[in-house]
Design a protein around this nucleic acid. Sequence first.
DNA 1: TTCATGACCGTAG
DNA 2: ACTACGGCCATGA
Length: 104
Amino acid sequence: MVKTYDELKPETKRIIEEIRKIPYGQVSSYRDIAYRAGLINGARQVARALHGLSEAHQLPWWRVIRSDGNIALHEPERSEQIQRLKAEGVKLSERGRFVPGQKR
DNA sequence: TTCATGACCGTAG
DNA sequence: ACTACGGCCATGA
């Protein structure tokens, strides 16, 4: 059984809200989301939350990447994420790496 | 309760 | 740019 929004822990709700705020065509990192949600070292929590709740809560999970600019997912989800980002006009290098504009 | 695991992170070589 | 390593911490076995 999947939990409803109201059954989630407060921190998890904040994480979800922050992810929803990421604007179209832009990406954010697990770490940034954690900080904005008030969790100092909560990057792993963010990752876990996304892993389990992305589709159930309509989250733009593809806009969340690792703080070093790499995609965290393994194939085949990895390819899907790259495709979705591309569709929003996000730039990425050949090897599937993002943002060379700002490293970390 | 202990132990392993992971959609992570930062530093060092 | 890439790998290795230690640290981090919620989760589940």
